[in-house]
Amino acid sequence: MNIFRFAGDMTHLVSVLLLLLKIYATKSCSGISLKTQELYALVFLTRYLDLFTDFISIYNTVMKVIFITSSLAIVWCMRAHPTVRRSYDRDQDTFRHHFLVLLSFIMALFFPDLFTTREVLWAFSIYLEAVAILPQLVLLQRCRNVDNLTTHYIFFLGSYRALYVLNWIYRYFTEKHAGRWISWISGLVQTVLYLDFFYYYFISWKSSEKLRLPA
């Protein structure tokens, strides 16, 4: 494990903690896309199938359990928690995320590493994660006043995969490890989708104003 990989995992963990903090502290999920949260829950459920079959390390198991349980807890909160669910912008969160699931599944059927159930589902989770943030970014453009915790959550969520890309670059040059092209391409696409947000996040940080995405 290299520093980029560890920093990526910690950044991902911080993004989850920020979202849980926002929902717990404000008892509200305003500005959060339920659809993105559902897509992420699906990403973790299909990627960590080996949770009970292959033990890799304590760290690996603990992180997988954290990501699966937190994503399911957030989806449950936004759907069923009596207080939180009232603040969900149902009429603003209208991205057709079912198409993202269908598209990713078709991609996984055509382009898996190996044509086995596990590998197809793994490829599906990688392709789906690359586009899972789209409903959230669209919602962010529609909601004018988004609280800082939400923007920090999105910033850390976008940064984690960028750090993974650095991890693959680092391993390519130091371990001559080519990595997996599915991870490379999806990780790059995922990070590129955030570039626009990163730009406005940086601008808002420099001018210490609230983050505003152009309409």
């Binding site: 292959d54 390390s57 992180m63 997988k64 590493d113 190996l114 391993r171 990595g179 997996r180």
Partner: peptide, 10 residues
């Protein structure tokens, strides 16, 4: 195929 070194990636 999934060589072991990427297996531990999250």
């Amino acid at each position: 195929a999934q060589d072991d070194s990427t297996k531990d990636e999250l």
